[in-house]
């Protein structure tokens, strides 16, 4: 019965392998779950601000209404970069679960938020500046991570800055149009005040650009 030993060892091997795979799968699912949760709240906040601005359009614009929207933006917008960083790390760590759909949803919400923020300017006399940061999910893009950190730093010191993120590699109708409109070809890039800057911008330059207050 020499061969039985080998068969049992092979069965044991397969089982141990599947145990490891299921631990990996469990981790994948946890990542997905956590990100789905975060994304759901992020999307609902986007929808909230979108309908608030729509409401603003219908009503007579007043400074009280605008103040509500400004506060909401200030509270919620800090999450974008953090969410993006986490999404990238999760995407890299994942083995089985696909982040594809969630990623697109996140990017789309970001763009919506950006558009709403720009729209708000037409009705309110706010002094905020919208900064669209185009990153690359390629781990080799070390500048992208630096730029993300710099933007975090700028936002923390300038309350009038609103940052939004966009992936250069992702192809969606909205993203493609924006890329074409602002002539974005490389990452990291920054779109602020209708202009495109295709390099890493140090904190001081961004602060000047957005007239930091």
């Amino acid at each position: 019965m020499v061969n039985l030993k080998y068969a049992i060892a092979a069965i044991l091997m397969v089982n141990l392998f599947f145990i490891t795979l299921s631990v990996i799968d469990y981790m994948d699912m946890q990542r997905l779950l956590r990100f789905t949760n975060d994304l759901a709240s992020f999307s609902s906040e986007t929808a909230d601000l979108e309908s608030a601005v729509t409401l603003l359009r219908a009503e007579q614009p007043s400074s009280e209404y605008c103040a509500i929207i400004d506060t909401a933006y200030q509270q919620k917008i800090t999450k974008t970069n953090d969410l993006m960083e986490r999404m990238l790390a999760y995407e890299r760590a994942n083995m089985f679960a696909e982040f594809f759909a969630l990623k697109r949803q996140f990017l789309l919400s970001n763009i919506q938020l950006w558009q709403v923020s720009q729209m708000e300017k037409q009705y309110c006399a706010t002094n905020h500046t919208d900064v669209l940061y185009i990153y690359s999910s390629d781990p080799a893009c070390s500048e992208c991570q630096v730029q993300g950190k710099i933007l975090d730093f700028v936002r923390a010191s300038c309350p009038n800055v609103r940052t939004f993120v966009m992936d250069i590699k992702e192809s969606m109708a909205t993203l493609d149009m924006i890329k074409m409109k602002y002539n974005v070809t490389s990452a990291p890039s920054i779109v602020a005040g209708g202009k495109t800057y295709s390099k890493v911008l140090p904190a001081d330059e961004i602060k000047q650009l957005v007239s930091c207050q």
Partner: peptide, 30 residues
């Protein structure tokens, strides 16, 4: 890669985030 990144961070006077999330553990590490 990490050297390049550290150089970039140093150039712009920023600190990379050192936040650790147990969910960052990758499959090969497991």
């Amino acid at each position: 890669e990490s050297g390049l990144q550290a150089a970039q961070f140093a150039m712009y006077g920023q600190m990379p985030s050192l936040a650790f999330d147990p969910l960052y553990i990758r499959a090969d590490a497991l």
